[in-house]
Simulated scan of single mutants.
Amino acid sequence: MNSTYKALLIDLSGVLYVGDEPVSGAAATLEQLRSAGLMLRFVTNTATQNHQAIINKLHSMGFIIDSQELFTAPVAAKHYIETNNLRPFCLIHDALKEDFQDLDQHQPNCVLLGDARDQLNYQSLNKAFQLCMEGSLLIGIGKNKYFKDKQGLMLDSGAFIHALEWAANTQAIIMGKPSYTFFTQAVRSTACSPNECLMIGDDVESDVIGAINAGLGGCLVRTGKYQPEDEMKIPATAHTIDTLSCLMSIL
């Protein structure tokens, strides 16, 4: 593996924890990585918790993470909407609504779609479809196909984004992984070049392939939603490890 890595981008769900249970050895590994002088960034498409709630959850599991080290797709989405003076129709989880309530949502000219769970019903999706057909932008907080929770594999918002893209003949702007822009923003915060950064995740497409397409290194962990067939999809330059705790020996 590249010995010149100076920064690590680490996914949360499936890498540090699964559901509400921390992955064995993950917290200790983070401390080893810090002691080795590596800069850490924690990147996630999680769209069911706000920024501070994610930090609180990590702390409760024994992970020592500073708020400035956390990059979330919802924060990136809000920044994009504000920068472009957009008015969103928000199809997002209840936990995020407080973070977006200060935005003008009257007469929406864009659709913001995230992991809204039961709110992703026919009525709400049809309204999103109608707005897209009228020319509104479709903005996705992430485009993951699925994730793994304590209930098992769970359908993620990517399937609904893909359906709207197909039905309305439009192309979504994706704020989270595997977006090139999202990875670029995370890398920029480290003051490192992309080839000095390694992304570690359990999603072969959003984490590993997305990172490699943005010029980073990619490493797939065999925890979380990892499936054995994923190893048939990874590029030749990517790496696989059993768990995060195996990373130090490779580095």
Rank of each mutant, 00 (worst) to 15 (best):
L30F: 14
E205K: 00
F89T: 02
T240Y: 07
Q107L: 05
C132P: 04
A7N: 08
I212K: 04
T181N: 11
T243M: 01
T83R: 03
Q68D: 15
I10W: 03
Y80F: 15
V221A: 00
K225C: 04
D11C: 10
G215P: 05
Y180D: 12
V187Q: 05
Q107N: 13
A168N: 08
T170A: 08
N213E: 15
K78I: 06
N50C: 08
I241T: 05
S136T: 09
V15Q: 10
L86K: 01
Q32T: 14
Q107G: 01
F89N: 02
G218P: 06
H239G: 06
T29D: 14
A168T: 09
M175E: 15
G176D: 10
G114H: 05
K57A: 02
I55H: 09
K145F: 12
A26S: 15
L91R: 04
N109F: 01
L244E: 14
M1G: 15
D149G: 15
I173V: 13
K150C: 06
G176E: 08
F71I: 03
Q68G: 06
K127R: 12
A159E: 09
G215I: 09
Q68R: 05
A28P: 01
C110R: 00
S136R: 01
T181S: 11
L220T: 02
G158Q: 08
G37K: 01
N144F: 01
L198F: 12
S124D: 13
V204F: 07
M1A: 15
L38D: 03
T190Q: 04
I141T: 14
L251C: 12
L16S: 02
L9W: 00
A236Y: 01
C192G: 05
I209L: 12
E134P: 06
L16R: 00
A77R: 00
P228D: 13
N213Y: 09
A214G: 01
L244R: 08
I200Q: 10
V43M: 14
M232S: 15
G37D: 11
L120T: 05
I200L: 13
L113Q: 01
A116G: 05
P108W: 05
